[in-house]
Each structure stands twice: as C-alpha cells, then as structure tokens.
Amino acid sequence: MPDRDASMDVIQREFTRFARRARQKAAQLHPELSLVAHSMLDHMDKNGSCHAADLAGHFLLDKSTVSRQIAMLEAEGLIVREPDPDDHRKQILKASEKGLDLLTGANRRRRASFERRFTHWGDADVAQLAAYLRCYNAAEDD
C-alpha cells in the first residue's frame, strides 16, 4: 500500500495532466468556443438563465472576465439578454437557439470522446470514477 504522501503526489500530477488534456480536448471538440465560453453557455443552458454575477460566482471569476466572455458570446449570437422583471438594473442571460445548437453538437462530440476513452472500462469502474469525482467536487462546495 503506497504511503499517503506518494499518493498525493501522483494525484497532483495526474490532475495537472487531466487539466491540460481537458483544455486541449476542448479546443479540438469545440474549436468555436473557448473552454470558459463553453462552460458559461452550458451553465446558462442547465439553469435556464442567469445573471452575470451568477456566472462570476459560480466560476470564481472576476466581473471583467465574465463581461468579456458575455460580450463575445453575444457578438457570436450564442446568448441573448433580457431585462430582469424583478430588477430592471440587471439583465437575464440565456442561451440563444444558435448557442443551444452549438452546445448540443459540442456535448455530443465530448460524450463520444468519453465513450471512446472508457471503452475498456467495466460499468462498475465507470460508476466508481463518477462517485469519486462527485465526492471530490462536493468537498470543494463545503
């Protein structure tokens, strides 16, 4: 049984490799969207709509970064803004039809990539990885 320090070193290295690979893969699977823009569009889709401040809080980004991404998404016709009926100083952001179509295609390609990657894994191993990732990410929420 490896010691905890050695295991933590491996985890750190492997997560770093994972992050680099994820950015590279994202650029291949949906070159029309940056990883950040894709993530924001996906968040809007999953939640139906949101405010810019919601994106900043969810992704731990500063408002200027979010503003630039929103401007890019809007310029590309991937999102629409609507006045917030509860606070007219704010705007509600939603994925446009074009944005949803782009996101659907990107997600289909990403899912196919995962399917290929896990071809030789058993169902129990895939389920265990899913459980570990859920647990890992939930710890960050605490």
Rank of each mutant, 00 (worst) to 15 (best):
T65W: 04
L133S: 04
A112F: 04
A131Y: 13
T65S: 08
E115S: 12
V80A: 01
Y136P: 00
R23K: 11
A95T: 05
D3W: 13
S113V: 01
D86T: 01
D125F: 13
R89P: 00
K94P: 02
A139N: 08
R109A: 14
M40A: 01
M44Q: 12
R116K: 13
Q69T: 08
D84S: 11
V126P: 02
N107C: 07
T16P: 01
G48C: 09
L35F: 12
G99Y: 11
F15L: 15
P2F: 13
A52D: 09
T16A: 14
E74H: 15
Q69D: 01
K25S: 11
A127E: 11
P85T: 01
A52T: 09
N107W: 05
A71R: 15
A130N: 08
R117W: 02
A131N: 05
R134D: 02
N107T: 05
I79R: 03
M1L: 07
H120T: 02
I11L: 15
D86H: 13
P85Y: 06
T65G: 03
R21G: 00
H43F: 15
S49P: 01
E97N: 03
M1D: 04
R89C: 03
N47Q: 14
L61Q: 11
G99W: 12
A19R: 14
V126R: 12
H43E: 04
L29N: 00
A75M: 05
V36W: 05
G105S: 04
E140W: 15
H51D: 02
R23E: 09
E140Y: 15
A139G: 09
C50M: 15
P83M: 01
S113G: 00
N137T: 12
E14H: 13
Q12V: 10
D84R: 11
R20S: 06
N137W: 14
A53Q: 13
Q24H: 10
A124W: 12
D125H: 12
R13A: 13
S34N: 08
H120W: 11
V126Q: 06
A106D: 03
A52P: 11
S49E: 14
D141I: 13
T65E: 04
L41D: 01
M40C: 04
L61P: 03
L73S: 03
F59W: 02
A6M: 10
E32K: 12
I70A: 00
I70K: 04
C135P: 00
A26H: 09
L55C: 03
R23H: 13
M72D: 10
D5T: 13
W121P: 00
A95K: 10
R4T: 10
G122V: 01
L33C: 01
D54A: 15
R116E: 09
D101Y: 09
R4W: 11
G122A: 06
D142H: 15
M1G: 06
W121L: 15
L133K: 05
S67G: 10
V66Y: 02
T119C: 02
A37L: 03
P31H: 07
